Amino acid sequence: MIYGDIHQPEAAGLPAGLLDALRQALALAPEQLSSGRHELAGTACFMNVMHYSTQLPDTKKAELHRQYVDVQVVLSGEEQIFYGAAGSARECEEWHDAEDYQLCQHIDNQQTLTLRAGMFAVFMPGEPHKPGCTMGRESEVKKAVIKVPCEEATG
């Protein structure tokens, strides 16, 4: 997991492919886009823009991916993300190949990250993460999740 600020993304030390995908997504002004999928031109990358209310962590499951790196950008609001190292997901459900995800009940040695508007977090394949968690009170969040195929991540 890597995190940083969208105003200085290079300071996070992202590989070139992830940095390029983040910059291209931000150039589309995701804060002004409607919810849904938006393609990033000239790549196999895409961005899902979403709006939701945070929830209690106990009501949510962690997710894993194999084919894509997740770059999660909070555009407005704030949330906590619970996460763990690769291989720390437990009590996992069936794998959904077509959508590239698996849900899990538990993360061993779970850590917590607080993201506020203008911050991003990067989750590599195999790293369990549970975004959209409340920080004591419900918050409305607008977020962009940039999906970068593993082969394009290093650029």
Rank of each mutant, 00 (worst) to 15 (best):
E31F: 06
D108Y: 05
Q110Y: 02
P131M: 03
K60D: 00
L56R: 07
M47C: 13
S53W: 10
Q80I: 02
E151Y: 15
A16K: 12
E39D: 14
M47Y: 08
L103N: 13
Q55L: 06
A12I: 02
E151Q: 11
P9E: 06
G136T: 02
G126K: 08
P30T: 04
C133E: 01
M124S: 06
D108G: 07
D70F: 13
A62L: 11
A144D: 07
F46Y: 13
A12F: 05
A89P: 01
K61Q: 08
E151V: 12
E94Y: 13
V122D: 04
E39I: 11
R37M: 08
H96P: 08
Q110C: 03
G155M: 03
T59R: 10
A29K: 10
E94Q: 15
H51W: 10
E93F: 15
E39M: 13
V122N: 06
T112L: 03
L40Y: 08
C104E: 10
P149N: 15
A41M: 05
S76N: 12
K130P: 03
P149T: 12
E99R: 15
G77F: 01
A86G: 14
L33E: 03
Q32S: 14
H65R: 07
H106M: 12
C150M: 15
R37N: 04
P15D: 02
H65Q: 06
C45D: 09
Y68K: 10
G136M: 09
A12Q: 01
E79I: 01
N48I: 05
M50Y: 05
P57F: 02
M1Q: 12
Q72T: 10
A121K: 03
C45K: 09
A86Y: 13
Y83N: 03
L115W: 00
Y52W: 10
E91Y: 13
A27R: 07
G36Q: 05
P125K: 13
C45W: 03
K147W: 07
K142I: 03
Q72E: 13
K60N: 00
N109V: 04
E138I: 01
N48S: 07
H65I: 04
G136R: 07
